[in-house]
């Protein structure tokens, strides 16, 4: 009965959306703001990866909100899951097989390196803080599954998170204090396609990379952690 009702409702809504989709032409260049970003992107922000320049400088406030959401989710998660209990030594966990242990011990640094590369070159090549952070987090996930007994130190992960977020805000406030607007790109833009170009964008993306990495690792750590 309930399946039928929801089916009918969804069909009506689908009909409405299909009708409204008719007015939106597909695949032809209909963009207004996007054109401006593509044409002026490089000389205004100095980053060759236009998506990164949009994410960080043009719509930087969104990304600030974005980080806050991740931070809220992490804090909310740990609040709901209750007190953080270290895993007792005596707990019996069957040790992972030898191949898995050596494999993950070998892969862990490589993954960290790949993650770091991605968020450092965020403004040049596709990828950035979020993707790099996610890779680092999956590196930690691999470490949990592979080599047992290794745990990230909770205090360091908090300090990394807070520093990452604070650098973003401080950069924004510096923009404010020098009389311009919040999140103004005050560092020199440098010439494109070099590592040190695009003003504050790489700095922000590195900070975001660290923050997202430690946060997602913290989330996984809380979830895996056995607590009463």
């Amino acid at each position: 009965m309930r399946k039928l009702i929801s089916l009918i409702l969804l069909v009506i809504i689908a009909g409405g959306i299909v009708l409204s989709l008719k007015e939106i032409p597909f695949g032809i260049s209909k963009i207004k703001i996007g054109d401006y970003y593509i044409k002026k992107g490089i000389e205004e922000t100095g980053a060759t990866n236009i998506v990164t320049s949009v994410v960080v400088s043009y719509r930087g406030f969104d990304t600030l909100g974005e980080i806050t959401i991740l931070f809220t989710a992490a804090i909310g998660l740990s609040a709901v899951l209750g007190t953080y209990r270290k895993r007792k030594a005596g707990e019996k966990v069957e040790p992972p097989s030898f191949i898995v242990k050596t494999g993950c011990r070998f892969l862990f640094p490589i993954l960290l390196l790949v993650g770091a590369y991605i968020f450092i070159h965020g403004h040049l090549t596709p990828g950035g803080g979020f993707q790099g952070g996610a890779i680092i987090a999956s590196a930690f996930l691999l470490m949990y599954l592979g080599c047992e007994g290794k745990r990230i130190n909770e205090n360091t992960s908090i300090v990394v998170e807070v520093l990452g977020a604070l650098t973003f805000i401080v950069l924004g406030i510096i923009g404010l204090t020098i009389g311009k607007d919040f999140l103004f790109n005050f560092l020199p833009k440098g010439e494109p396609n070099t590592l040190l170009s695009a003003g504050i964008i790489p700095v922000i993306y590195i900070a975001i990379g660290f923050k997202v990495g430690s946060e997602l690792a913290g989330i996984i750590d809380h979830l895996i952690e056995k607590n009463q």
Binding site: I5, L9, I12, I13, G15, G16, L19
Partner: peptide
Amino acid sequence: VGYYAIYIMLFLALLIFIQI
């Protein structure tokens, strides 16, 4: 919760249906 989600969809479907 199933009913509550159906109420939301019902509201939306009602509006769309009346307009169409």
